[in-house]
Amino acid sequence: MKINAFADVSLRAMMVLAAAPAGGLLTTSAIADAIRTPYNHVSKAMAKLRELGMIDVERGRNGGARLSNAGRSATVGQLLRQLDPRQDLADCVAADGPCPLINECQLRAALSRAREAFYRELDGIVVASLPTTGQMTPVFAAIGLRPGL
């Protein structure tokens, strides 16, 4: 199973926010630098995370983002379900339109069950519990901060 790039960026942003000093705000730019991802990609991820209630954002000169209470308790499985809206793992298309096998396709049903099993396995992992001091120290050093773990 492979997650999409958007979900990957979103999860990495959540991990950085989880490791931020208590009460501290991080800008989208700082998060982009920390995870070495283009600002535009991180900006879109942050907008979605805000829409989902995973982060709180303060605007203004000293503004930034922090994990919300919901974000602190969100699991990887929960987030992936919300961040990857694809209904089917297979494209189910042929060169000239829909796959001719699509009616009563048992493969699509099996792939759907496998995807849900993947998410269920990740439902027990809280995103905020993932970052470690050893992992985040160099990440935060790159943006001039110390992790708050």
Results as ranks from 00 to 15, higher is better:
2 K>E: 15
4 N>H: 11
4 N>M: 08
6 F>T: 08
6 F>D: 08
8 D>G: 09
8 D>F: 11
9 V>C: 05
10 S>H: 03
15 M>G: 08
17 L>N: 02
18 A>N: 02
20 A>H: 07
20 A>M: 05
21 P>N: 02
22 A>K: 13
22 A>F: 11
22 A>I: 10
23 G>T: 04
24 G>Q: 13
24 G>Y: 11
26 L>R: 06
28 T>A: 15
28 T>W: 00
30 A>S: 15
30 A>L: 15
30 A>M: 15
30 A>P: 09
30 A>R: 15
30 A>F: 13
30 A>Y: 13
30 A>G: 14
31 I>V: 15
32 A>C: 09
32 A>D: 01
33 D>I: 05
34 A>M: 06
36 R>I: 09
36 R>D: 08
38 P>V: 07
38 P>G: 02
38 P>D: 03
41 H>D: 01
42 V>I: 13
42 V>S: 07
44 K>V: 06
45 A>K: 03
45 A>Y: 03
47 A>G: 11
48 K>F: 01
48 K>E: 02
50 R>L: 07
52 L>F: 01
53 G>N: 01
54 M>E: 00
56 D>N: 01
62 N>M: 12
62 N>K: 13
64 G>L: 02
64 G>R: 02
66 R>E: 12
66 R>C: 02
67 L>Y: 10
67 L>S: 09
69 N>Q: 09
70 A>N: 13
70 A>Q: 14
74 A>R: 10
74 A>E: 05
75 T>H: 06
77 G>R: 08
77 G>Q: 06
79 L>H: 04
81 R>K: 02
85 P>I: 11
85 P>Y: 00
86 R>P: 02
86 R>S: 14
87 Q>E: 00
87 Q>F: 05
88 D>Y: 15
90 A>R: 12
91 D>N: 01
92 C>S: 06
92 C>I: 08
94 A>D: 15
97 G>N: 04
97 G>E: 03
102 I>W: 05
103 N>Y: 09
103 N>E: 12
103 N>C: 06
104 E>H: 13
105 C>Y: 06
105 C>G: 00
106 Q>F: 07
106 Q>T: 12
108 R>N: 04
108 R>E: 03
108 R>G: 00
109 A>Q: 12
109 A>W: 08
109 A>G: 01
111 L>Y: 10
111 L>T: 14
112 S>H: 15
112 S>R: 15
114 A>C: 02
115 R>G: 09
116 E>I: 11
116 E>C: 13
117 A>N: 12
119 Y>G: 01
121 E>G: 00
122 L>T: 13
123 D>W: 03
124 G>W: 00
126 V>N: 08
126 V>G: 10
129 S>E: 11
130 L>V: 13
131 P>T: 03
131 P>H: 03
131 P>R: 04
132 T>V: 07
132 T>E: 03
138 P>N: 02
138 P>S: 08
139 V>I: 15
139 V>L: 10
141 A>M: 04
143 I>Q: 01
144 G>E: 05
145 L>F: 07
148 G>Y: 14
148 G>W: 14
